[in-house]
Design a protein around this nucleic acid. Structure first.
Lengths: 209, 209
DNA sequence: CCTAAAATACCACTAAAGTAGTATTTACAT
DNA sequence: ATGTAAATACTACTTTAGTGGTATTTTAGG
């Protein structure tokens, strides 16, 4: 069994040394190198191809999420583990949106840290529990507004689905083999039930962002 | 320090016994009861008020996500931990959307199981690593389409933001102290850059669901 | 069988959205 | 200094969206 190759990008000496020591202590891992800033790793990015990259979000020369975005182009199969002292929503979601698949707070123990690398390599997404809750709440807010959906009939839901895709009335009519006027009537009823005056308001009410 | 009260809803004897034993073995937890199906717990729901509910997703008389939805009304402050042998997307997301804040596979060890209860109680969202990855991917797909956003100027993004809320052109103009015509021009440019023909198409391109 | 809700369809109308072209001013970068 | 992009504003026009009313047919429930 081949060992898992790791790079570290961390500007603070204390953490860089700590992470390096942890990786070296684990026989299943091999440390390629530890870099102090974004540019020094970008300079050699096309010469290496790690399995795991551990990225500090607070680098001096570039936001961590920006670094991930760029490194992903060089290392499409690499898993990115963000390590941060911060749990602010912006940082967390920017990192995730740019391809981070794990997010640990720096309070993580050595055991959690090494387990996270294993999890990442096994297709998991390790997160500190505070981060996990934020992510969970994000998922919950992005789901359907059930109580509004219940007000609509089957046919109306079918039409709303097409409305939300941006189809025009005549396209919806063609899709469902209905007359243009019938579609309009249905949409009128939908808006009345949802207490809205436009397509966008209806969509926002049914599919909260 | 007060102990954490737990209920279990699990139809398979093997797992029900196992979970009960685990909870009893932990001095920080107290087991209220273990129920074999959804209706037997709903029958007594208003008489109890647990801190943590452990729910099997594959109950005989009701889908687990439906049970969570109903129990949440009785126990608004309870944290729901789903335990399932399945990691199918539908089950996972239905559960999360209905209020589950943790999701473990039944392969979890006793240690992971008890740690999950602690994490839940501390405001975390424990997940088996396979689940965490699904959730992470969901977040990634639901986030801003960065490459499209980059095509727009600051002013255009500002206008798109208001467009996506369903404001009319005249309302946007008033908000930004612009003329109605200028807003229209901006929107025209936005649509051209995004290669769309309507508000809904633009929104869908920038904020994928 | 009968009724209420749902689905279908049409008309007339107003409001809003979207298209196309032109033009001026500011600001920034080569 | 000069060219380019961005932001502002206007006109003229077409298409689509949204409102209100009426009416017929289907479907499901009591």
């Amino acid at each position: 069994m081949e060992s898992i190759s790791v790079v570290i990008v961390e500007d603070q000496d204390f953490f860089a040394d700590e992470y390096s020591a942890r990786v070296k202590s684990d026989s299943k891992l091999s440390l390629i190198n530890a870099y102090k800033n974004a540019n020094s790793v970008l300079a050699v990015a096309n010469a290496i191809n790690p399995n795991i990259a551990i990225i500090d979000i607070g680098l001096p020369d570039m936001p961590g999420y920006e670094l991930i975005k760029q490194l992903r182009l060089f290392w499409p199969n690499c898993q990115f583990l963000v390590c941060s002292i911060h749990a602010e929503d912006d940082l967390v979601f920017n990192a995730i949106c740019n391809g981070a698949t794990g997010y640990l707070l720096k309070t993580a123990t050595e055991e959690e840290f090494l387990q996270a690398i294993q999890d990442l390599h096994n297709g998991g997404s390790p997160m500190s529990f505070q981060i996990a809750r934020k992510v969970m709440e994000f998922v919950q807010t992005k789901s359907l507004a059930t109580q509004e959906v219940d007000k609509l009939t089957q046919r109306e839901l079918q039409i709303v689905e097409l409305l939300s895709k941006g189809l025009r009335y005549k396209e919806i009519a063609a899709d469902l083999s209905l007359s243009h006027e019938t579609v309009r009537k249905h949409i009128n009823n939908i808006y009345r039930k949802l207490e809205v005056q436009s397509r966008t308001e209806a969509i926002n009410k049914l599919y909260p962002r």
